[in-house]
């Protein structure tokens, strides 16, 4: 595909790293180009007109010019800075986790519009959600679905039989549920409660607004978090860095976070 010398795109800023004296390399998620990396020049100088528009976790409209290696951002305009989100350390940290998740799973220059829409939707909801944990679980489940890792929740991945309303198993390596008879057919499995399975099925078929109506006990929240995190760790073959900080916040300020 040939692209013009200068082009315009919407983007969400996933990551920024310093380059040289005053520049930054941005990792952007765009609707048409998927993940791209670009250089923003001079943005660490307070006089920069561009700096504020390419802040981390900003939804912006950008003009880019083709560069030799990386493209160069020539103009930017903020579409949404998600300010409700930015006022709260826990919500910021959740949003950074989503950004890291997208960055980890997305290959460069692979278009995936549903992922862009999902990220935008989730960042909006994180600013107002009563249950941020549900936004994260919804996001994880749907992101995996859009990337071709939709977990099979309706039947056993091995024998294909319908699941009985009993204690079943979830297998990260099998990509879905296992019935008690088939539990030994996969290397990575864990028990899953009936309630956790119901919540996952509900999340898979609802939208973010509806998902906020759920009320989960702390135990159930933790089970879902651990289950999806294990599945993600299995797929990425590593742990995401921002999860450590989320746990740290929970430890340091136990009382009033969620």
């Amino acid at each position: 595909m040939t692209t013009p010398k200068v082009y315009k795109t919407e983007a969400i800023v996933l990551r920024r790293i310093n380059l040289g004296e005053a520049d930054k390399i941005l990792t952007l998620y765009t609707p048409n180009l998927g993940k791209i990396r670009a250089i923003a020049k001079g943005v660490r100088k307070p006089t920069s007109k561009l700096g504020g528009h390419v802040e981390l976790l900003t939804h912006c409209s950008l003009m880019l010019a083709r560069g030799r290696n990386l493209d160069i951002v020539s103009q930017g305009e903020t579409l949404d800075s998600f300010s409700p989100l930015r006022r709260d350390l826990w919500r910021i940290s959740c949003a950074l986790y989503l950004a890291e998740l997208v960055d980890a799973f997305a290959a460069e220059n692979v278009e995936n519009r549903p992922v862009f829409a999902l990220l935008l939707d989730a960042l909006h909801w994180l600013g107002q959600a009563r249950h941020t944990g549900l936004v994260l679980r919804y996001f994880e489940l749907h992101l995996l679905g859009h990337l071709g890792y939709q977990p099979q929740l309706q039947q056993c991945v091995n024998c294909k039989s319908a699941l009985e309303p009993t204690a079943n198993f979830f297998s990260a390596s099998g990509g879905g549920m296992l019935c008690p008879n088939c539990v030994d057919t996969e290397p990575v499995t864990r028990p899953i409660s009936l309630n956790a399975l119901k919540v996952l099925r509900f999340l898979q078929n609802s939208d973010l607004a509806t998902s906020q109506r759920l009320r989960l006990s702390p135990d159930l929240s933790r089970e879902l978090e651990q289950l999806l995190r294990e599945y993600i760790r299995y797929l990425l073959e590593r742990e995401l860095k921002s999860t450590e900080f989320l746990h740290r916040l929970e430890q340091d300020f136990v009382t009033d976070l969620r």
């Binding site: 005053a22 943005v43 660490r44 307070p46 006089t47 920069s48 561009l50 700096g51 504020g52």
Partner: peptide, 10 residues
């Protein structure tokens, strides 16, 4: 202080 800038350059 403009958002996004570094203190050392202000």
């Amino acid at each position: 202080l403009p958002v996004g800038g570094d203190l050392e350059y202000a």
